[in-house]
Write a protein that binds this DNA or RNA. Structure first.
Lengths: 249, 249
DNA sequence: TTATCTTAGTGTCATAATGACGCAAAGAAA
DNA sequence: TTTCTTTGCGTCATTATGACACTAAGATAA
């Protein structure tokens, strides 16, 4: 059962992180399974009184994934009064997840600041559960388990934000391994955008951005023709990120 | 001096609104001048315990502008610990803006949720100051007076968000009067984007979106050739807003 | 009254970007 | 050796974009 020192936290405020990973052509999010019940939650937490919001999110992510230096972006703050289910604190206590004297703390109205993070799936060796959870796993965004409170909505909004981001920013540096094939990059785009793209046109367009470096190496040991391996030209990538890609005006 | 019932507010939490208007080819924001000092602030406030964040922003705007039904968008939440100037509450008390017993409330760490609003300048007849301000005025974003705390940064971030919005959404419905000329619409775009656009190419592109209706009327009594008056085709405009305009993929 | 000046409206043209799709080469599997 | 699938390269028609010329309308100046 979780014992936390609520006095050190900013009241009413929480953060939630939607951690995206990409594996087997699926967009995944990291979720925590609450101990003893089939309810899942986003990694997140309260905000220490003398900690920046960003830092609170970064620290949460480090604990769960072991990763530092993660791509992180604040995308929305969720503050509807409806999101505070009055039965929630009772539920947590009944299930033995928190002690009874935390009732008041959990019974507050919380406003949560949503961040999304992009991480390289394979880099996260063993996601670690928290004090009130028994598992931390990757789940496909298209097949989410039952989520706590409004966490489903938070995931959806994060995905939407990511989609939008994609249309004027290069994406991939934080989601793919160092070297990758053109097909893998395309699959990432298709997965995030939930649409199909023409293979040849995709190649042409992405190459035109000048953010890819041909490594002159090939992926071996795979079926069919060995595809070329690319990596991102980090400085060009960052420059393109700054400038924005498809600005309309 | 402001007397407020802090017990009814969510602690640690505030909202700030960047209200954009467009007048004389300038992008303006609505600011409040604190009584007795040359320090200005964004309209904003605390969040009532049983009020949605959006509603808090809407209510703030109604009080200041008299307008209901305003275009409003949450764009960022500001929560750095650095934004809390420990001298600020003392400053407010010294200047006689708030009573001494509010020191503790104002001395909290505040996280503020930033909204920007788009309003039609001429619709705001007489902006009304609040309890701690003696004036409420439109100021050009390019020539802002000294602002309280990090409000300058908030305005800048809002402008940036608006700029970005412009590149994949139609804008104007909420900023221009019902009928307007092509030049006025272009001036709005140029002002927000801080760039010059070719007159003829702008016309072609904006017309291609199919969101404008030719009213068959002309602006009279102006120098030179009488320009045609347009209005937005609201349903087409909303459809375009939904769909997004210049998605890259 | 006529010439001049400025803004509005329309059109042109070269170039770039996009969408649709053909074809051959490289491997792995049959 | 043949078949099958994926990769890499290219074509072509259409559309979008940037640069800019020309004419019309109306106010002002000569």
């Amino acid at each position: 059962m979780a014992e936390i020192d609520t006095a050190s936290f900013v009241p009413s405020l929480a953060i939630d992180c939607v951690v995206f990973g990409f594996h087997e052509n699926e967009l995944k999010v990291l979720l925590l399974k609450l101990t003893g019940v089939d309810v899942w939650a986003l990694p997140g937490g309260f905000v220490d009184k003398n900690k920046d919001l960003e830092k609170a999110a970064i620290d949460t992510l480090e604990v769960r994934t072991g990763l530092t230096d993660i791509f992180l972006r604040q995308f929305h703050t969720f503050g509807s009064i409806a999101r505070n289910d009055p039965n929630h604190p009772k539920f947590l206590i009944d299930k033995g997840l928190i002690s009874e004297d935390l009732f008041d703390w959990f019974n507050q109205r919380f406003v949560t600041i949503g961040f999304y993070a992009l991480v390289e799936y394979s880099q996260v060796k063993e996601p670690v559960p928290g004090p009130i959870s028994e598992a931390c796993e990757w789940c496909s965004v298209n097949d989410l388990p039952p989520l706590m409170l409004d966490h489903q909505e938070i995931v959806e909004k994060a995905h939407k934000a990511l989609k939008r981001e994609l249309s004027y920013q290069p994406i991939g540096l934080n989601l793919l391994p160092n070297q990758f094939t053109m097909s893998e990059l395309q699959a990432l785009y298709e997965t995030i955008l939930e649409t199909q793209l023409d293979r040849r046109n995709f190649r042409r367009k992405i190459l035109s951005y000048g953010i890819l470096k041909d490594t002159k190496k090939f992926r071996t040991g795979v079926a069919h023709k060995a595809p070329a391996l690319y990596e991102f030209d980090v400085s060009a990538y960052k420059k393109a990120s700054q400038a924005g890609l498809n600005m309309g005006w």
